[in-house]
Amino acid sequence: MSYAISVNGQVHHVEDDGQTPLLWVLRDTLKLSGTKYGCGAAQCGACTVHVDGKPMRSCTLSLERASSARITTIEAVEGADVRAIQDAWVAHDVPQCGFCQSGQVMSAIALLRTVEKPTDRDIDLAMSGNLCRCATYNRIRAAIHDAASKLGTPT
């Protein structure tokens, strides 16, 4: 079946099984490889994308369901908060192997869009669905606090 799917502001016509996980449509069909496969079971968060602005795991979202929403991936997510987060990620040298970081960044952006000044508890609640085997968690936490305070400071 053919589905019209809106990804990063562009409508693509995808000919595929409606039960195909969005993750594989993004990676294999649309060649957007920033969104990663880590577990395929909504356990690790490496495949997090924004669906109508909300963070969702693309490994457990069908093409059929995704076709009725606006999808944003790490490649095209933008805004002052995105820049603040990515700057903080670099300033803290957060990544090690880096494989989970697309998902971490997407979750962190969604967090700051929900809670302007997250507490440690807010960060725990929002980010515990994103695994990092290199255990860069402390730096992720520091970078989120850093980005939040930079965004809160009028320039």
């Binding site: 990515q86 990544p95 880096g98 960044v105």
Partner: peptide
């Protein structure tokens, strides 16, 4: 002395084996 790859690993630009696409490639 800092990492040189933090930016590319924070923007999804870093290419891993999983991300390789070649013309005519099979999986």
């Amino acid at each position: 002395v800092r990492r040189k790859d933090s930016l590319s690993k924070s923007t999804g630009a870093q290419v891993y084996t999983q991300d390789i696409q070649r013309p005519d490639m099979l999986v």
